[in-house]
Amino acid sequence: MNPLWTVAKRELASFFDSLIAYILLIIFLVFCGLFTWLYGSDIFLVGQASLQAFFSIAIWVLLFFIPALTMRMIAEEKRNGTIELLLTKAVSDRQLVTGKFLACLLLVIIALAFTLPYYISVSMLGDVDHGAVWCGYLGLILMSAAYIAIGLLASSITDNQIVAFLLAIAMGVVFMLLLGFIGNGLPGILGETLSYLDFRGHFGSMARGVIDTKDVIYFLSVTALGLLLTEVSISRLRA
């Protein structure tokens, strides 16, 4: 077995062993459910058979959910010294980072899978644009991947989980709010570039059912860049 899967498997097992997974899943579902069905501009208020309400709340819940997953990933290993154990085994830094990344992504996918009943309920209420829903889910997964990579980077530059958590949220706020906000306010190429880097713009078009390769490539490149920088940050431990 590729050591990458060994690492991913252990991380997943440790999520479920330590109750972290259950607590986070419950919180995720409570928040998403609340705002999708009961509160604010929920489905009944909008009166359309679509999951727009869910998608627009899900990204904000993920803003907190994902840092809570990623914060301990590397910071805890550094604090406990177990990073020495991992780095001296027959695992490359890349396999290590990718394994941890996959474990987080899988947990996010599990969380999203629990929201499929929303989809089923809505589709019973009215005529749903099925393409848009799947597209939205794909968008959520891609955005989560990018955000997980950012969270791992945050976790790799400190040995304090709280710092890693806050740092990841700060970077999340930059990508979800600030870039778009500043980008819209600035004229010309600079404004456009900043708006382009915003998560919500790319996710928004996917949630409406438009798959543009540009959006996919954007999220994939942020993911790759985040993972690469995490790898660099880990390799600096060796210096």
Partner: peptide, 24 residues
């Protein structure tokens, strides 16, 4: 290693299995 770092929330057998798998 010096301070014998371990994943203390793992079971002994699980942990040894994990290390064996990592060492291929």
């Amino acid at each position: 290693p010096e301070h014998n770092p371990l994943y203390i929330d793992m079971g002994v057998l699980d942990y040894l299995g994990f290390c064996a798998a990592l060492q291929q």
